[in-house]
Nucleic acid binder design. Sequence first.
DNA 1: CGGTTGTTTGAACTGATTCAATCTGTGTGG
DNA 2: CCACACAGATTGAATCAGTTCAAACAACCG
Lengths: 236, 236
Amino acid sequence: MASRRARSPTESVSLRETLVSAGLEQRLADLLDQMQHRVVYVEPRRPFREQGAPRDEVMFVRSGILSKYKSDATGRRQIVALRFPGEGILPVEGPAQYGIQAIVRCEVLVGKAKDFNPIVEENPELQRFFWRLLQRNESIGYEWLVNCGRRDSTARVAHLLCETAVRLHVGNGHMVNPFTQQQIADITGQTSVNVNRVLADMERQGLIKRKGREIEFSDWDEMRRVASFQPAYLQN
Amino acid sequence: MASRRARSPTESVSLRETLVSAGLEQRLADLLDQMQHRVVYVEPRRPFREQGAPRDEVMFVRSGILSKYKSDATGRRQIVALRFPGEGILPVEGPAQYGIQAIVRCEVLVGKAKDFNPIVEENPELQRFFWRLLQRNESIGYEWLVNCGRRDSTARVAHLLCETAVRLHVGNGHMVNPFTQQQIADITGQTSVNVNRVLADMERQGLIKRKGREIEFSDWDEMRRVASFQPAYLQN
DNA sequence: CGGTTGTTTGAACTGATTCAATCTGTGTGG
DNA sequence: CCACACAGATTGAATCAGTTCAAACAACCG
């Protein structure tokens, strides 16, 4: 336990637990847990890390959702990746080509690259763990490209909702949709106006029911079909 | 030198040279060069590796261009990544979520994952090399997402051409365009018909000149502006 | 209550697709 | 050298999906 901040009594955050819940063996999680790290709370709507800044940190999401985003020269914003609880963002050498912002309020564990890298280098099993993590992220990135490049508006939104449900481990067909319509637009490469129409359409067609931010998948199979969602790419 | 096939006198292919030209130190390239590998020639237009097949191989492109692609359930095809000479495709555990096909005729060096992985694990410097490679690929993937999600038709094609020129180390503003218009469409998420119109427009506007497959960048600065091409993401 | 953030709706517009036909260049076999 | 096949490039016309702009509405919060 090397967290820099005092732990409040109600707060059960530890890096070890976070990693174990992400599928890492206890023994290996213990190794990383010795790394100096601190807990940061990230609020949505305000920039957390800027595009172009050095990124010599490891981050692991404990709760909430983080997004990586890029802005085009013309100012249009695209979210290029999401990090759900248990997932992380690894350090890069030199300036990062993307910014980081929260989708919803996040609890994030942050460590330093210079502490993190040697631990990983010394442990082949940790290497393999993070290697697989990178490959899963790559796989998700490819699926997002197919989504943006080749699917129509409805399928894109449906696909994002399916993926989100799986990554949040929603079991009962009932999910509190974490995204604003603008965020869905920024992920799927559309306008928020159109996302609104698509969601309304999906409800009219009986694919989902909505109450405020809650979404119920009334017909999961049909939803998957519309989205052409094949979850294999997530199980990498 | 452990290449399985006899080397013809005119053939100067070696894994070591390929890696050194990709920026790897001689000493480290020598280590990998000891790995069993063979030379394969990959023809465009016919599938080389199928989506869903196991991918327990390392590949390095010696000449030509390889593509990774995915097909949507509706059959629409999206190219999700390119590999230029000196670049490689690393093995994944389990079935691959993408197929591999040549853009133009390729010379590819293929080795086995079970030979490759231990060599990398034993050498922290090799790890770091491939780690950076993965991060560069990630960075390019993010840029492609911005391209597909947030740029208009012209900018997408222009951006692909700019990126290709840089990755091919074209210095004189003159490039033999390696892509068919259908391939450009499959990368940028459009139809070949529209790509044709976009290219014609770009020529009319004096951004490029075309002779068959040859492209001359008449106004590189303007081209970059139209594409909003910031090459930093390639130098990762 | 006023301020802020997010959702919903309408009308006009436009960029890209679709479908179909034609044209061009290249390689192959007779 | 010609005929034929084939891959790719080009063009037109009709259509449509998604954007843009603008305004109104709802929910939340200090």
